[in-house]
Design a protein around this nucleic acid. Structure first.
Length: 112
DNA sequence: AAGGTGACTGGCG
DNA sequence: TCGCCAGCCACCT
């Protein structure tokens, strides 16, 4: 349910993140055409939450951490969903972006 | 319709 | 790397 053209593009790109991979707010913002709208990506994802078909849990911050607020157990849910896809967290609750980061539509394995 | 908020980031010490 | 800070910008009153 895109409420705006921007949100529609955000969902569109997030849907392309492969299972077992993640992307960052900044990367999605860039793909959506607004490189500086990383916060906007968060706002767009926040507007859909509960059981959307959009894999919002595959979006993390630039440090490989979960930015979603811990309240409502959403943080734990995201961690669980990612773990179930095989995404590994290190001892500091972060994931190795160099290894699980999705390289976009032109990256290996996802030619456009 | 104007102003506040925040699931962000890059730059700098 | 880490913490802090000031832009940024889409969302929601």
């Amino acid at each position: 349910m895109p409420t705006s053209p921007f949100a529609r593009d955000v969902y569109r790109w997030v849907r392309r993140i492969p299972e077992g991979s993640v992307s960052t707010y900044g990367d999605i913002a860039a793909l959506a055409g607004s490189p500086r709208a990383a916060r906007g990506v968060g706002a767009a994802l926040n507007a859909l939450l509960p059981e959307s078909e959009v894999p919002w849990w595959r979006v993390v911050n630039r440090k490989g951490e979960l930015s979603i607020p811990a309240e409502l157990g959403l943080r734990a849910l995201q961690r669980t969903l990612l773990r179930d896809e095989g995404v590994v967290f290190d001892g500091q609750g972060r994931l190795d972006l160099a290894r699980v980061r999705w390289h976009g539509p032109h990256g290996p394995g996802d030619p456009d």
